[in-house]
């Protein structure tokens, strides 16, 4: 059994250690959050998005070269229809409650894209229905 004096001394020492540990932990946590928020939002997605973009360009390249020249007109109208997927951005702009410039812009974009989506797919279908084999 140690004497009370040395016990108090050791308890004090331990408390000090715990304090530094806590301090270090806070610092570490802060580092972790900054590491997670800053680069994850500002840098990593761009490289990731660029990767997706470049790969999609390659996919498009190989798929489109396989399209038969006879169907180049439907290709134009269907690509036109699917590029109206920009409506996704427009829906988010038109989505919030209340009225704002952004919402009006979103509404206009939704309408324009809808013309394209309906018009593009229908005219493509009309064209494709005409292509038929020798009877």
């Amino acid at each position: 059994m140690a004497d009370p004096a040395s016990l108090v001394e050791r308890a004090g020492e331990l408390a000090g250690n715990a304090d530094t540990l806590a301090h270090n932990l806070t610092l570490f946590a802060r580092q972790l959050t900054t590491a997670q928020t800053a680069p994850a939002v500002a840098e990593t997605p761009f490289v990731f998005e660029l990767t997706v973009f470049v790969l999609a360009v390659f996919v498009g390249y190989y798929v489109v070269w396989r399209v038969t020249p006879a169907l180049h007109s439907p290709l134009m109208s269907v690509t036109n229809a699917i590029s109206s997927v920009i409506i996704v951005g427009a829906l988010i702009a038109a989505g919030p409650l209340g009225v704002s410039l952004a919402k009006v812009m979103g509404f206009v974009a939704v309408t324009l894209a809808a013309v394209n989506i309906f018009g593009g797919f229908i005219v493509t279908q009309r064209m494709l229905q005409m292509f038929q084999r020798k009877r």
Binding site: A56, L75, T79, I82, V85, V88
Partner: peptide
């Protein structure tokens, strides 16, 4: 371009498909 702005991979992929299709034509 809008897809990059909104970080939306669907827009990026579709834009890239359509862009390369038009370029090939």
């Amino acid at each position: 371009g809008i897809g990059f702005t909104l970080s939306n991979s669907l827009l990026i992929i579709t834009g890239a498909l359509v862009g390369s299709s038009g370029a090939i034509l």
